[in-house]
Nucleic acid binder design. Sequence first.
RNA 1: GGGCAGGUACUCAAGCGGUCAACGAGGGCAGACUGUAAAUCUGCUGACGAAGUCUACAAAGGUUCGAAUCCUUUCCUGCCCA
Length: 403
Amino acid sequence: MSTKNFPPLNEQMDAIRRGTIDLINEEELAKKISKGRPLVAKLGADPSSPDLHLGHAVVLGKLRTFQDLGHEAHLIVGDFTAMIGDPSGRSKTRPMLTVEETRQNGKTYIEQVSKVLSNDRLVVHYNNDWLGRLTFPDVIKLAGSYTVSQMLEREDFHKRFNEEQPISLHEFLYPLAQAMDSVEIRSDIELGGTDQKFNLLVGRELQRHFDQEPQCILTMPLLEGTDGVRKMSKSYGNSINFNDSADEMFGKTMSIPDSAIYKYFLLATKVKDIAEIKSVLESGEENPRNIKVRLAQEIIRQFYDPSAADNALQRFEQMFVKKETPDDIEVLLLPIGSECVVVDLMVETKMAATKSEARRLIQGGGVSLNGEKVSNERATLIPTSAGVVLKVGKRRYLKVKSA
RNA sequence: GGGCAGGUACUCAAGCGGUCAACGAGGGCAGACUGUAAAUCUGCUGACGAAGUCUACAAAGGUUCGAAUCCUUUCCUGCCCA
């Protein structure tokens, strides 16, 4: 077992180092690798938001690298810690979840993770298994291993403290709980986003505290969301999700600002010629749109088969460049001779949340019937056998046919 | 336990007795433009309606012709003192 063949040390180090922000520290890691046994590479999964997105793919991809090098990927589903809610980078206390909710989320999490990780050398843990067993005296002892000012070293806590924002006591426990995970699985290296640096370092401390060899830590840059500014997050509504359709992935990728293109290539794809892409972008000799098209396709290829990427491009061209009506619109059948008010129809079919919103859309010129702008809020629609195409905004279509 | 400062729409943040469905910014949506669902510019952003009406400014009461604005109590947050 331990005689397993690993790639040469420097090759491993290069692969591990690529794209990282912090790697603490390299000598320690080299030493661990040199022992010739598979490393325990740890990644914590936060099941409080069950939908994975491209931001997660950055660090998951790195974990995959460890698998490919012959090491073990240990995924810790934080079903216990999700009850606390990681305060990292937050300016507010997060809502706490119940165990049931987090278990459920954990399941869907694993399904999605398998799109990036290999099933070989993958170990999945649920940290409620050990953290849930701690007694109150255990917790007090644990809390005693760290001080308030150590906690306040962390930037986000520090900031909230200075800005007189609330910090709940349990939030201090989060880094310690995560650190306990490292102790429990005897982690050799823990991966995370840069926002996790503090938590990862606490793991190191705590392992020392328990007389274990401290883990190395590796952080990856955070990927900005499609707005190009805030970090990608479901709750900001700027994420490209694992479960998005190829078309959605395409469209969302096209909506990132041009300035974010390079970073997306670097972190969200595995393309080799990133240096070239960078120089092309900087020279401005190519319309950024075209580079973005390639990016979108590269991203889609990681989740769907290659033809999906081409199809998505085609549909995008049709819909937005040529402004044609797509051919596969949802059809709504209504009885012959029925006449319905457009505003009501929009609400019923969820094309608008409320009647007021529907009216606003009409006033703003965002609604059309068979290509003709609707100008009257009280416009009605009579379904025909050929179908009337109702368009709301740029990409919401509905065909209304008489039954 | 005492003192002080706060709680306003998705977020931040004005308003401090009528002209407030509530300035401004961000976000979101839409329109124009464009070889981009980039950038830029413009409009909209409580609900229902024809005008207009109703529900909203932590919660509950109260003062007033009239309250987000004043008073009382309650809940929540921060700071200082103990």
